[in-house]
Design a protein around this nucleic acid. Structure first.
Length: 321
DNA sequence: AAAAAAACCAACCGCATGCAA
DNA sequence: TTTGCATGCGGTTGGTTTTTT
């Protein structure tokens, strides 16, 4: 099965041409002439994020929040467009992002919600705590859309059950019909509740970083309760396993020597006893039994390290280790 | 083992929307 | 009411990885 590889991991392994992401000609053509770009594309870095950039963004947001995305990159020492920072944060770095493969329940939920809302990815994401609109969109386009094209022998399958309440919508094996269905659902936002999921204009975007985000979007109608029952067994936000975290962040923190830049440096070790004490505390917080391979150095007197540590405790609090 | 095709998904883009001046 | 800015959203792209031939 497919491995969940973090973007930064990919970056380290393979990415080569970040400065030439897409064709400039094509971009200009798409852009038209009316609107100024949000930032000077020639002066910002594009393409996959490095672990160093990720860490800068994380620590900055934990310290200062993200009131102004446009100003954030400069303040955080990032050579990135504010939009890019926002996207990176929302889709990958936010502590409440759930990584890893989608469960059957989550997939079924997406299918139901897609019938109700169409391609309103952010709305769908608001019903799936920890999942981002982008991720859901990708899953839909790569997996679920295909699943909705039933094979002849599959017409009464489990899948059909999932979407069975929507009897007014034709589920055709014809791909063009299937796509048409999707297009139709894009065009019309249903006025009537379909499958129990109703349009709720009060629903907020899942994008903002708030510990109460997922609880505020709890569905309250009948099918919402069904959805709730799908989700309630395991609160994904409280059960994010270590291996679903973006390993590169851990890796960077484990090996700070690999994370050095002019304006953002991790101080060197000066006190072994202090380091060991901190490591023990960290292990306790993380519920780790051993410190093997976990040798983040620490200088207690160093203010920079202090902020790194405070970021750590924020993360450990948020993840409820 | 190598090449080709398919699948995957992170990141991009422009437009839409909301809000303040 | 208009204008301009910031953010959110959904569609699309294209590089990488996996599977198939």
């Amino acid at each position: 099965m497919k491995q969940c590889v973090s973007s930064s991991e990919k970056t380290q392994k393979t990415f080569k041409v970040s400065a030439n992401f897409g064709s400039e000609k094509k971009r200009r053509r798409r852009m038209g002439k009316g609107r100024a770009p949000c930032c000077d594309k020639t002066k910002v870095k594009r393409g996959p994020w490095s672990p160093e950039e990720d860490l800068k963004l994380i620590t900055f947001i934990h310290k200062h929040g993200h009131d102004n995305w446009r100003a954030l990159p400069k303040l955080a020492g990032l050579v990135r467009c504010g939009k890019s920072c926002r996207l990176r944060w929302i889709n990958y770095l936010r502590p409440d992002v759930k990584r890893g493969n989608f469960s059957k329940e989550e997939e079924d939920t997406i299918i139901r919600l897609h019938h109700a809302f169409g391609n309103k990815w952010s709305k769908i994401a608001s019903h799936l705590p920890g999942r981002t609109d982008n991720e859901i969109k990708n899953v839909w386009n790569t997996h679920l859309k295909k699943r909705l094209k039933p094979k002849p022998s599959q017409s009464q399958s489990n899948l059909a059950d999932v979407s069975s309440p929507i009897t007014t919508t034709t589920l055709s094996s014809d791909s063009s019909s299937s796509e048409k269905m999707e297009q139709d659902s894009e065009k019309q936002v249903p006025n009537e509740p379909i499958n129990g999921f109703t349009e709720d204009p009060k629903e907020s975007s899942p994008a903002s970083f708030s510990s109460s985000d997922h609880s505020s979007s709890k569905p309250e109608d009948e099918d919402g309760q069904i959805l709730e029952s799908l989700l309630k067994d395991d609160d994904p936000l409280l059960q994010i396993p270590m291996d679903t975290l973006d390993f590169d962040i851990w890796n960077v923190l484990e090996n700070p020597e690999s994370f050095q830049s002019n304006d953002f440096q991790v101080p060197s070790v000066s006190d072994d006893a202090d380091q060991n004490k901190w490591l023990r505390e960290l292990e306790n917080e993380l519920g780790l039994g051993t410190s093997e391979g976990f040798n983040l150095p620490r200088n207690a007197e160093d203010a920079d390290m202090g902020f790194l540590e405070s970021s750590w405790s924020s993360w450990t609090e948020i993840y409820n280790f």
